[in-house]
Amino acid sequence: KTVHVNGVQYDFDNPEQAERFAKEMAKKAGLQIQFHGDQIKIE
C-alpha cells in the first residue's frame, strides 16, 4: 500500500501498517484520509 501525505509518498508492504500510519498522520495534522484502492491519500 502507498500512503500519500501532502505529495510525499510512503510505501508499506503491510496494509494494516499503512492504515495505522495514515490515521496517525491525519490525526496529527488534522487532515482528511481518502482511500483509493491501494493508495491512501491524506490532504
Rank of each mutant, 00 (worst) to 15 (best):
R20I: 12
A18M: 02
K28R: 08
I33L: 09
M25P: 03
K27G: 13
Q39L: 13
A29M: 15
D13L: 07
G37A: 08
A18F: 03
L31Q: 07
L31W: 12
Q17V: 06
Q17M: 10
Q34N: 10
Q32G: 07
G30D: 10
A22P: 00
I40N: 05
V5N: 01
Q34L: 11
N14W: 04
Q34F: 13
D38K: 03
F12I: 02
F21E: 02
Q32F: 06
K23C: 14
Y10S: 00
I40R: 00
N6D: 09
Q17Y: 03
H36C: 15
V8Y: 08
K1P: 07
A26R: 03
E16H: 05
A26D: 06
G37V: 06
Q39M: 13
V3C: 12
Q39I: 14
D38H: 08
D38I: 09
A29H: 15
Q39E: 11
Q17I: 06
E24C: 15
D13F: 04
A22I: 12
K28C: 15
E19I: 15
I42P: 07
E19C: 15
E24F: 06
A26Q: 04
E19A: 09
Q17D: 14
G7K: 02
K41C: 15
F21A: 02
E43Q: 10
L31V: 12
A26M: 04
Q34I: 14
K28Q: 12
G37D: 09
E16V: 06
H4V: 15
A18H: 00
F12R: 00
G30E: 10
E43F: 11
E24L: 05
E19P: 00
I40E: 06
V5L: 11
H36V: 13
D13V: 05
F12S: 01
G30N: 08
E24K: 04
D11C: 15
H36E: 12
E19N: 05
E43V: 13
F21P: 00
F21N: 00
A18Q: 00
D11M: 12
F12T: 01
K23Y: 13
H4S: 09
K27P: 02
K23E: 13
Q32T: 12
N14Q: 04
E43W: 11
E16S: 06
G30P: 01
E24S: 02
N14K: 04
D11E: 10
L31R: 00
F12K: 00
M25S: 04
G7P: 01
Q34T: 14
A22T: 02
T2V: 08
K27S: 13
Q39D: 11
Q32I: 12
V8E: 05
N14T: 15
G7W: 02
K27R: 07
Q9N: 05
K1N: 12
G30Y: 04
E24R: 03
A18N: 00
D13S: 07
N14I: 04
E43D: 10
V3I: 07
Q17G: 03
Q9W: 08
K28W: 12
R20H: 12
E16Q: 09
K41G: 08
V5W: 14
K28N: 11
E16Y: 07
R20C: 15
T2Q: 06
K41H: 14
Q32W: 04
E43H: 10
G37T: 08
K41I: 15
V3L: 04
D13E: 11
Q34E: 11
D11Y: 15
I33E: 05
K1H: 13
I40P: 06
V3D: 01
Q39R: 07
F21M: 01
D38G: 10
Y10W: 06
E24W: 12
D13R: 02
H4I: 15
N14E: 07
D38V: 10
Q39F: 12
F21Y: 03
F35P: 05
E19R: 09
H4Y: 15
D11W: 15
L31A: 13
Q17F: 02
I42G: 08
N6P: 01
H4M: 14
E19M: 15
V3H: 03
K23R: 13
E19F: 13
F35Q: 07
K1E: 03
K27W: 11
K1Q: 08
K28Y: 13
I42W: 05
G37K: 08
R20P: 00
F21Q: 00
Q39K: 10
I42H: 07
Q34R: 07
A29V: 11
D38Y: 07
Y10L: 02
K1D: 03
P15G: 06
Q32S: 13
H36P: 06
R20V: 10
A26N: 06
I40C: 06
N6E: 05
A22Y: 11
I40T: 05
D11P: 03
K41P: 06
K27M: 14
K27A: 13
A22E: 06
Q32E: 11
D11V: 14
E24T: 02
A26G: 02
G7A: 02
E16M: 07
Q9V: 13
E16N: 04
E43G: 11
H4K: 04
D38R: 00
G37L: 06
I33K: 03
A26F: 05
M25V: 12
R20A: 14
M25Y: 13
N14R: 04
V8S: 03
G7I: 00
T2P: 03
A18C: 04
Q9A: 11
K23H: 11
F21K: 00
E19L: 15
P15R: 11
R20L: 14
G30L: 05
V5I: 12
V5K: 01
I40K: 03
G37M: 06
H36N: 13
Q9T: 10
H36F: 13
M25R: 00
Q34A: 10
F35A: 08
K41S: 10
G7E: 01
I42Q: 04
V3F: 04
E19D: 09
A29Y: 15
A22L: 12
V8I: 09
R20Q: 14
K27C: 15
A22S: 04
A22M: 09
K41Y: 15
K1A: 11
H4D: 04
R20D: 10
H4C: 15
T2E: 02
T2H: 07
E16K: 04
P15K: 11
T2A: 03
F21V: 02
E16C: 14
A18R: 01
D11K: 13
F35R: 03
